[in-house]
């Protein structure tokens, strides 16, 4: 970081420059005290600054989290799967499970030197949806495994979960229902694109398959899969969505 060999004549430094230099140094000192504290574990400095002061300074512009692949790197492959009940000629048929994440890995990650953000989208959605479900106590979570119908199914599901929890509102339940609506909207568009307009109901699940531990990598190990299986839901179309995009990505035979 050496100065370029430019002609610098030593002139007396203007007082304004000195003042500005001090201000810049002070700003930097504060900014990096805040940045360091933000990145460190909760500590006395954070308390001294005040958690809300620190948050309002850092978020959104300087929001950051650098504990990447730490303390241990992620070692679970999520799979976001969808299947549907299709009614044709009075007969209803259940399709096979279709994995959105497998499709992303196959068509958008593999053989791509610069993968698109598809390397994140369905994977992160699967992980967050799964986490939001697991945040709910098991017996209440079982409510999600039931079949729901009708256009207002999200509010019905939410109300039933709150009733079982015996509370008026719960951020955990709201977050789960928000992810549920997101995933069902996406799954419904995919199902219609893939299996046609005769799709009557859709179901989603998340499978989490751990990577075989390093020590056992050369053995035949069947990893223990964790899962969350949602109940059947009515087709929940996303208003105003460009269906041509879903057709091109998910229609059987289209390989994009």
């Amino acid at each position: 970081m050496q100065a370029e060999a430019r002609t610098v004549e030593r002139r007396p430094t203007p007082i304004a420059a000195r003042v500005m230099a001090v201000v810049v140094v002070l700003v930097l000192a504060w900014h990096f005290l805040a940045t360091y504290t933000w990145n460190a574990s909760p500590n006395a400095i954070r308390q001294a600054i005040g958690n809300s002061t620190l948050t309002s300074y850092m978020i959104p512009m300087f929001g950051q989290s650098w504990s990447v692949f730490a303390p241990n790197p992620g070692s679970v492959n999520p799979s976001l799967d969808v299947r549907a009940i299709v009614e044709r000629d009075g007969k209803s048929q259940t399709t096979d499970w279709y994995s959105l994440t497998d499709r992303s890995a196959r068509n958008d990650v593999q053989l791509h030197p610069i993968p698109s953000r598809m390397y994140l989208n369905d994977f992160i959605l699967a992980n967050r949806y799964y986490a939001s479900a697991l945040a709910i106590p098991t017996d209440v979570r079982n409510e999600a495994g039931k079949t729901y119908g009708g256009p207002v199914w999200p509010s019905l599901l939410q109300r039933n979960m709150l009733t079982e929890l015996k509370v008026d509102s719960s951020p955990t339940v709201s977050a789960f229902v928000d992810y549920e609506r997101t995933v069902l909207g996406l799954a419904s568009e995919v199902a219609v694109a893939r299996w046609g307009s005769h799709v009557k109901q859709v179901q989603v699940r998340v499978l989490k398959t751990p990577v075989v531990p390093f020590a056992q990598r050369n053995q035949k190990v069947t990893p223990e899969v964790s899962y969350f299986v949602d109940g059947w839901r009515p087709v929940t179309r996303v208003p105003g969505v460009d269906t041509a995009v879903f057709d091109s990505m998910f229609k059987t035979g289209n390989r994009s």
């Binding site: 692949f69 992303s104 890995a105």
Partner: peptide, 10 residues
């Protein structure tokens, strides 16, 4: 481990 995650293995 990350070298065996689907999303990180082009």
């Amino acid at each position: 481990y990350p070298l065996h995650l689907q999303s990180l293995t082009p």
